[in-house]
Amino acid sequence: MSAALAVQAQGLTKRYGRTQALAGLDLAIPAGTVYGLLGPNGAGKTTAVRILATLARPDSGWAKVAGHDVVREATAVRRAIGLAGQHAAVDEGITGRDNLRLVGRFHQLGAREARRRADELLERFGLAEAADQLVRGYSGGMRRRLDLVACLVTRPPVLFLDEPTTGLDPRSRGEIWDAVRELAGTGTTVLLTTQYLDEADRLADQVLVIGAGRAIADGPPQRLKASIGARVEVAVGSAAELPLAAAVVARLTGGEVALDQDGLLVSVVSRPGRETSLPQLVRELDAAGVAARDVALRTPTLDDVFLALTADAAAEEVAA
């Protein structure tokens, strides 16, 4: 495996009964990056993480984490990783400080080093004031942050975060995002699975969209967003203007136009390379005699990428 890759996988497959969870997944995650793994429920995200974390064995294919094979060198992989699952795995009956000390002792740190490491992490991630409170009194965001911090006691070079902000309120999600950015700044490799597209957009250096257990597209968020074009929406004043506006929008964008007869709305996603400007669009509508009530030009988000790519993948699967 290349020294520049913290995680690598080729042809991973996994079946549970009649369900094909993974169907030949490849991964190549550069060291020191935040890598987003995106996909709908059932796409295979958690299965991939379980295999990489040695909690499940692939039916075929291979994977390496920090240079170690996940099947043949499982013990070495476990020493090199941290894992935060979808639910905080902390002991609510003891304090935050004692949770971290317990983790350190479990990983065979000496008592003094476990105390020192716990104190360092609590301070660094904004939990020092609540360190000696029972965890049952923590907010949801604080528990998730403590769970994440517990993964760092042994300084793992690779960290797996499986939907770390599921069910959290916006403030708590922001706290976790800050913690992930802090980790990335120290050189830790983070594999983040999420259904929140804004989360991946803000945090990930690169994302991989998967569906039905296989890769659909990968690349930096900006490149993926540029691949599907901008969305254009034109609201008109009468039904008679709908076809006129549709003709203008189709000519400028090259995309497939959708008409909302009730809302008197024309919308389209432009083809890549056929983006138009708002002033040009307004001029062309005026020239065609369209008195638009509203004209909007919205650059694509990862939500748009996700919906477009997963819809295409689903259509191909049905056709096959």
Results as ranks from 00 to 15, higher is better:
Asp260Phe: 05
Val257Trp: 03
Leu259Trp: 06
Ala240Gln: 14
Ser227Met: 04
Leu259Gly: 10
Ala245Cys: 01
Val232Pro: 01
Arg231Lys: 14
Leu244Ala: 14
Val248Trp: 01
Glu256Phe: 13
Ala239Cys: 09
Val257Thr: 05
Val249Trp: 02
Ala258Thr: 14
Leu242Asn: 04
Lys225Leu: 07
Ala250Val: 08
Ala250Glu: 13
Asp262Pro: 08
Leu244Asp: 12
Val257Cys: 06
Ala226Asn: 12
Glu233Thr: 15
Pro243Glu: 03
Gln261Cys: 04
Asp262Cys: 13
Glu241Tyr: 00
Gly254Tyr: 02
Ser238Arg: 05
Gly229Tyr: 11
Ala230Leu: 07
Ser238Cys: 10
Leu244Gly: 07
Val248Thr: 00
Ala250Tyr: 05
Val234Pro: 01
Val257Gly: 03
Ala230Ser: 14
Gly229Val: 05
Arg231Met: 10
Arg251Pro: 04
Gly254Ala: 12
Gln261Leu: 14
Val249Leu: 01
Val257Tyr: 04
Gly255Ile: 08
Val236Asn: 00
Gly229Met: 03
Ala230Tyr: 06
Val248Asn: 00
Gly237Cys: 06
Ala226Gln: 13
Ala239Leu: 12
Gly254Val: 11
Asp262Val: 15
Ser227Asp: 05
Leu259Thr: 13
Gly237Asn: 08
Ala240Tyr: 06
Gln261Val: 15
Ala246Phe: 05
Ala235Ser: 12
Val236Gly: 01
Ala245Asn: 01
Gly254Lys: 06
Leu252Pro: 09
Gly237Thr: 09
Gly237Gln: 07
Gly255Phe: 08
Leu244Ser: 10
Val232Asp: 05
Ile228Asn: 06
Val248His: 01
Glu241Asp: 15
Gly229Ile: 06
Ala245Ile: 01
Ala240Lys: 11
Thr253Tyr: 08
Val232Gln: 04
Gly255Pro: 12
Arg251His: 12
Ala235Pro: 09
Val236Lys: 01
Leu259Asn: 10
Val232Lys: 06
Glu233Pro: 08
Val234Leu: 01
Ala246Gly: 04
Glu241Arg: 02
Leu259Pro: 10
Ala230Phe: 05
Ala250Phe: 05
Leu244Asn: 11
Thr253Ser: 07
Arg231Ala: 14
Glu233Gln: 15
Arg231His: 09
Val248Glu: 02
Glu256Ala: 15
Leu244Phe: 08
Arg231Ile: 10
Val249Thr: 04
Glu256Arg: 15
Ser227Lys: 06
Glu233Tyr: 10
Val257Glu: 02
Lys225Thr: 11
Ala239Val: 13
Gly255Ala: 10
Leu242Ala: 04
Val236Asp: 00
Glu233Asn: 14
Ala226Glu: 15
Gly229Lys: 00
Ala246Met: 04
Glu241Gly: 04
Gln261Lys: 11
Asp262Leu: 14
Lys225Phe: 11
Ala226Lys: 12
Glu233Ala: 15
Leu244Thr: 13
Ser227Val: 10
